[in-house]
Design a protein around this nucleic acid. Structure first.
Lengths: 209, 209
DNA sequence: GCAGTAATTAATCAAGTGTATAATTTCAAA
DNA sequence: TTTGAAATTATACACTTGATTAATTACTGC
């Protein structure tokens, strides 16, 4: 009986593969289904190897969460493009409520991880980082947007708008990704843009370009 | 060596105790920590007993989710009180962004359960029921609110407003419950009420009474 | 008070978990 | 071609999990 053949991979590649396999497992089987063996199988590797790249399973899962959140925010932020602030904000909003950001698989992974934040300090820290990044991005954009329009842009007002806008985007993202409702007849992008404009006191027609 | 003493309980009481113990376990230890033994310990009972009241662990967890969501919505809806529609809507909003609805423990349980919805059909159904109930409640209140004010209350407009409002409330609820940000200096209730009024085209001063 | 029934406990099982380690294989350098 | 170090596999272990069953206990009705 002969051993299975294998070939070596650079450290970065193997880590990426293991993380990707972890996210796939979580998406399809839930966090409980992301066992060491399941992940190893999906990565085309034996379970023992995981321990060479991650001290333990907890670290692997935390690493998977970090890259997941980072990618998610990066994808959303990529929708900004460049141009005047209100255009960049509109881009961010559009990206946030359409695939691949707003998507069932994405939501599943997010929810599975979020569920651990309260009972797992390592996950809590990984979460805080990513959340803060998105929050800062919105606050920055809102501030620029208000200044651009010459309206009152006090720090307090910016913060209030950022809180509300962040909540609206989170909520819409969840609603859409969840897929429970039938959004086929409504234009979710337009709803998101118009609502944002209304909240910020901008003319909707202008905001949605 | 003598057995531990015990006393019998009506079926409904035992079921409630087991469900409560399950929710406590989930809140403190995450879903993975809600093992049969942990739940039994918290309920002051031996593991075997669970099977007498719930066919298997999956059923227990699903039952816990159903009562959790039902209680949550009931608590939020209780904030409505009676009176004109816009007052009831304001009450619902206030209840949604303050304890015990907006609360870390509540969010932890919610998130843990949500994370299973995609990979577990039983949980998916339990989720759909509860979510639909809250969604209908908001849609109903928004409709009444618009008609009360004599403005356009087409089914389409009501639906749009309900989508946005539902998202806003979900998002605010998550933000506040998460506890990541410092909300000590901002009045979240006022923010929620003003934003809602703005979105619905109502005078904020009047809406927040 | 007594008997019978149903609730509850206690003990056990097989399966699956994360982890550890020794045996192998690959690959690059000499 | 050979050698040596590092990556990978294979195997095993101790533990936890959900489930099952028989023995015991508490309570109800007589």
């Amino acid at each position: 009986m002969t051993r299975r053949t294998f070939h070596r991979e650079p450290e970065a590649v193997r880590q990426n593969d293991l993380i990707a396999a972890t996210l796939d497992s979580v998406a399809e089987l839930g966090l409980a289904g992301a066992t060491v063996r399941e992940v190893a199988n999906r990565a085309g590797v034996t379970p023992g190897l995981i321990r060479r790249y991650f001290d333990n399973k907890e670290r692997l899962v935390a690493a998977a969460y970090r890259t997941f959140i980072a990618d998610l925010i990066e994808t959303a932020a990529a929708g900004c493009g460049d141009g005047p602030a209100h255009r960049r904000l509109a881009g961010l909003i559009r990206a946030s409520v359409t695939p691949p950001v707003a998507d069932g698989r994405t939501l599943s992974i997010w929810a599975a991880f979020i569920g651990t934040v309260n009972s797992d300090p390592v996950m809590a820290e990984a979460h805080r980082e990513g959340y803060q990044a998105f929050r800062d991005l919105i606050e920055h954009l809102v501030g620029e947007c208000l200044r651009e329009r010459g309206t009152d842009a006090s720090q307090q007002l910016i913060r209030r708008h950022a809180i509300v806008l962040n909540a609206l985007l989170d909520g819409l993202w969840i609603e859409i990704s969840m897929g429970g409702d039938d959004f086929s007849s409504v234009d979710v992008v337009r709803i998101a843009l118009d609502s944002t404009a209304t909240l910020l006191g901008i003319d909707p027609a202008e905001f949605r370009e």
